[in-house]
């Protein structure tokens, strides 16, 4: 918990929450449960970010098709995160490399920057392991899925 907490416009306390996603989607409920909590957390006006590392990077790859499994493909919902004002999705470079993936294999997830004439900007930021570790160490709360 940081010593100085930044008050928001209404005087409430804004904390830094990071959702840490490390599991492949569809095989277990971790990914879909995480997404659900992320969408709910948007209602509380906190500083929310998402991290994707290990197999978690598969949660945001393009062209997921679950029709053969008979379960819902929830991956399009990540593209709505910008509407919920969740605009920071950190993806670990090493996790992509280990799995033979590149940033081009990930969905295009954008947000409109209200402070910059509503310009469309990418929400996905690929970062190295060291930088991601540093980001995690700067959070008030880490939520693991």
């Amino acid at each position: 918990m940081s010593d100085i907490e930044a008050p928001d416009a209404e005087g409430g306390v804004v904390k830094k929450f990071m959702f840490v996603n490390r599991k492949s989607p569809h095989g277990t409920v971790y990914a879909v449960e995480s997404l659900e909590v992320v969408l709910i957390s948007a209602a509380f006006d906190q500083d929310v970010s998402l991290a994707f590392l290990d197999d978690g990077v598969f949660q945001i790859v393009k062209q997921q098709d679950t029709s053969g499994l008979g379960i819902k493909n929830f991956s399009p919902a990540y593209r709505a995160l910008g509407d919920f004002e969740i605009t920071k999705l950190y993806v670990e470079q090493e996790a992509l490399d280990e799995r033979g993936l590149t940033a081009d294999d990930l969905m295009e997830i954008m947000y409109e920057d209200e402070d910059d004439d509503y310009e469309e900007k990418p929400s996905v930021r690929v970062v190295g392991r060291g930088e991601l570790s540093k980001l995690m160490s700067e959070q008030d709360v880490l939520l693991s899925f």
Binding site: L39, N73, F74, S75, R79, D83
Partner: peptide
């Protein structure tokens, strides 16, 4: 249309903003 595109039903303030 929103549901077709994103597979979720938006919360009220997201709906109004959209």
């Amino acid at each position: 249309d929103y549901y077709e595109e994103y597979q979720i039903a938006p919360a009220v303030r997201v709906l109004i903003k959209s």
